[in-house]
Nucleic acid binder design. Sequence first.
DNA 1: GATCCACGGGAATACACGGATG
DNA 2: CATCCGTGTATTCCCGTGGATC
Length: 389
Amino acid sequence: MDIDERIERRWQTGTTSLVRDYGALSPVTHVDEPTNRGAVLERLLDHLEPTFEGRLPPNAYVHGPPGTGKSAVVSALFARFARHSADRGRRIYTTTRAVERAVARFVYLDTREATSEFDFYRDLLDALSDDPAPEHGVSTEELRSRIHDRRTESTGGVVLAVDHVGEPATVDADTLVDRVASLPSDVSWLAIGGAEPDRTPLTDYTATTLRVDRYRRQTLTDLLTSRAADGMGNQAFEHRQIRRIAKRAEGNAHDALAALFVAADRAEVADRDALADEDVAAGLEEIEGTSVSLGRVLTLPDKKQLLLRKLVDLDDGRYSVSDLTERLSDLPDVDLSSSTVMRYLYEIAEDDIVERVSESTSESAGRPPSRIALRFPPTVFRRLYDRRT
DNA sequence: GATCCACGGGAATACACGGATG
DNA sequence: CATCCGTGTATTCCCGTGGATC
């Protein structure tokens, strides 16, 4: 946010409310300029350097624990490169033919959003084409062949980043290997995932492996401070509160931001003009034991998100699957049959978004039911869900 | 007419338990 | 005592159908 934006925002809202920008506090927001991962950025640039000379880099694997900025850095970098190569291509094109040079295309693909084989190729084709790729009516095979057709039209090849490989509901390493194998040979890929290099078949196909480590305490503190200032202003928090969150989050920026988000929201609701220590405590408590990225929750299909949205208002961890099925499918704005609601609940649990806690108290006959417990901070999800549309 | 996918619905399987059986 | 069996739930699996779109 620049100064004008800040002033404008103050004018428009005209209020003294604490939170000025939930987006700045959100754990799913990636800033355009990740400032705290300089070393990672440098190594990625090293890797991509051949593209400056019209060559393609080898395949690569970027890995590291959750909340360390892998997605943030790669997506920001690819967005930049995509812009630059487009500019460069245009400029070179309009000057003399002698310096005309092949320019690689850069495509970032998130397998949380593009899960199916069809989506995978469709999104790639879409990024490579000027016209939107079809959503229906064509076969997956047809998409693949159209991607191959593109190859004859462009010269510089493609660098394809594939994010979130190996999460429960995305694509696993073997599937990805299959899919990239059917791409034209002038596609260099860069997979991003959490698995250690020696635990994934991906590294059999990559020349470069790039590790992203946890944030150091101080770096995370800086990151949080800057986000807190953007979201609430400098007067709304104390440095010691930020340090407390950074300490507890143990290098995980996602969890740290989630805690900050909850704290800010709580203070806002209580109409305070600054974070109280109990707000921070509440924020820390809410990330306790939760380990799923909100990005995963918020890329679930709409109907499943709707169910979860209802669930967070209902759940205190006491309800069984069949209880919840009944309650949720009775809700007027849930237009799903109870059998679908139940199936979705099981699927969400299978994806580790919620957890099924088995009941040891076996009262009646038959297999004992299990209770559903959330694995994400409910307050953050509730706000973020309600804010879209 | 072809394609993909979200839903719905139900069949198949797993699990827990108590009682029967060898 | 170990194992099997029947019953009642819970959970998983699978397939058909229809909508939206090309």
